[in-house]
Design a binder for these strands. Structure first.
Length: 201
DNA sequence: TCAGGGATTCTT
DNA sequence: AGAATCCCTGAC
């Protein structure tokens, strides 16, 4: 019986901050694709109006958030972009952390190819736009619905220590594109590494 | 069964 | 500022 990595048992907002500076790895047949996490958002259902699990909504899509923390919650947005999330909170409490930006660390050539296809030469703008957004980083790492529900650090998806981030280098602010969340729009549950170029716009 | 909308990205 | 694009959801 596989156990859950204890790091994922932390409180969601605390874990969100600690994820900054850690390395997200997709271990593929042709090598590791990886990047340092530089931006995340916390979603604390069922009380959080911005969360997919608000009000205890429990469907095929949100089901994994009701299970053990440390599993992958993937969803498709706007019919074309995948988003990668880490399930958090105790069993029965549907919380998650969305990874919105990473700084490439391993397998950059493969990532460029996955995102932009075959190019005679990749430009500076290709590198800059490789992983500075939730849909972009999934495309570059090759993450999709096939990874829904996988146990992190017990599968091809890994999150491991990489670099310590000082508390004063963490920026907290409101989450992006949640206009529907009414009084929860302004909760400062978006965290990023100050000044990092791979933080999304 | 179906209309409406979205935790985005790219182009104009 | 608007389009692309389609799965998920809730209502009927």
């Amino acid at each position: 019986m596989k156990t859950i990595d204890p790091i994922f048992k932390k409180e969601t907002l605390e874990l969100a901050r600690e994820l900054l500076g850690m390395e997200l790895v997709h271990d593929t047949a042709y090598g590791e694709l990886a990047g340092k996490i530089v931006e995340v958002e916390a979603y604390k259902g069922p009380e959080d109006k911005a969360a997919h699990s608000f009000g205890g909504r429990r469907t095929t899509r949100t089901e994994v958030m009701y299970g053990e923390p440390g599993h992958v919650y993937m969803f498709l947005i706007y019919g074309m972009h995948h988003c990668f999330n880490i399930v958090t909170g105790p069993i029965g409490k549907p919380e998650a952390i969305l990874v919105r930006g990473i700084e490439p660390t391993k397998g950059i050539d493969h990532m460029l190819h996955k995102r932009f296809g075959e190019k005679p030469k990749y430009l500076k703008t290709h590198y800059k736009n490789l992983t500075n957004g939730p849909g972009k980083l999934c495309r570059s790492l090759g993450l999709n619905m096939a990874h829904y529900g996988l146990p992190i650090n017990r599968s091809e998806i890994l999150i491991q220590p990489y670099e310590a981030i000082k508390e004063e280098d963490i920026v907290a602010g409101p989450r992006v594109n949640i206009d529907y969340a009414e009084e929860h729009i302004h909760l400062p549950w978006r965290f990023s590494i100050r000044g990092n170029p791979y933080v999304s716009k």
